[in-house]
């Protein structure tokens, strides 16, 4: 069971949205390098429970890097130090025995902390509800192969669609901007023939909703792309800007 790593964790604890939070220090001992980061957190939490203390709340679900639920800011980086990896896929072999690890929630006024490391990302849902769809009713569609899509476009649309909505882009951006997230969705539809009819309306509505949610603005530091576990490209942001300018000024 036990491994040989001993770590010091500085973890953000916050009782609820209205409470103010603070860092608490915990020792994680007997950690195996083969554990995932969340498994290490499990070990710490089991200890806390058995000591009669309140375990650390954190979001997680699939633990295979696809659901987008896990969300820790580890040692100053969204999802920790590795590129293209979510927290749940980050393994402890990335750290050294004796390391101190700082763990914080995503910080953004659009993502209020619910408890400890758990934040409310429903702003992302509302942005999608504003226009992140093609308006087709079930059943009223033509044969799937009736509209050919150039492979390059389909592949590029896929790369944009690979976003898992985890919010790391917002967390990593010094301005808490959500532009990478929004632009990925805008791009996916802008690249496919199915998205053309509502193309202008979609980008306008989604950007407006994004602005209402209180995210910051993009200053093209490209930290979002660097920290995105799915490596969504900032070229999506350029495309969204283009789409928005076109939609607002030329259509």
């Amino acid at each position: 069971m036990s491994g040989n790593m001993n770590l010091t964790l500085k973890v953000w604890r916050q009782k609820n949205t209205s409470a103010s939070g603070t860092f608490e220090t915990y020792q994680a001992s007997g950690i195996s390098p083969d554990m995932s980061f969340l498994e290490m957190m499990d070990v710490v939490n089991e200890d806390l429970i058995k000591q009669g203390k309140d375990p650390i709340a954190f979001d997680h679900d699939c633990r295979e890097g696809i659901c987008g639920m896990c969300s820790m800011y580890i040692n100053g980086r969204a999802h920790g130090p590795l590129k293209g990896v979510t927290t749940c896929q980050l393994h402890m072999r990335t750290f050294k025995d004796g390391d101190t690890i700082t763990i914080e929630p995503w910080r953004s006024s659009a993502f209020p902390v619910l408890k400890d490391l758990v934040v409310d990302r429903s702003a992302f849902d509302r942005i999608q509800q504003a226009g992140g769809f093609v308006s087709v009713n079930t059943g009223s569609v033509q044969d799937a192969n009736s509209i050919p899509v150039p492979k390059e476009n389909a592949d590029e649309a896929f790369l944009s669609a690979a976003c898992i909505g985890c919010g790391a882009c917002v967390a990593a951006c010094k301005n808490s901007s959500a532009m990478l997230f929004v632009s990925a969705k805008v791009s996916q539809y802008a690249l496919l023939p199915q998205g053309q009819v509502e193309r202008a309306k979609r980008v306008v509505n989604m950007v407006e909703q994004m602005d209402q949610e209180g995210f910051g603005n993009c200053t093209n530091t490209e930290a979002c792309e660097a920290e995105c576990p799915k490596q969504i490209s900032v070229s999506n942001i350029a495309r969204m800007n283009r789409e928005y300018i076109k939609a607002k000024l030329f259509s």
Partner: peptide, 27 residues
């Protein structure tokens, strides 16, 4: 813009690192 950006993160990180790929100037 800078004020709006500041307001978008009312509580700042205890530890924060820019990824190596981001230029110092950009931030």
């Amino acid at each position: 813009l800078a004020l709006a950006n500041k307001a978008a993160r009312p509580v700042s990180y205890g530890a924060s690192k820019m990824p190596g790929s981001s230029s110092w100037a950009s931030s």
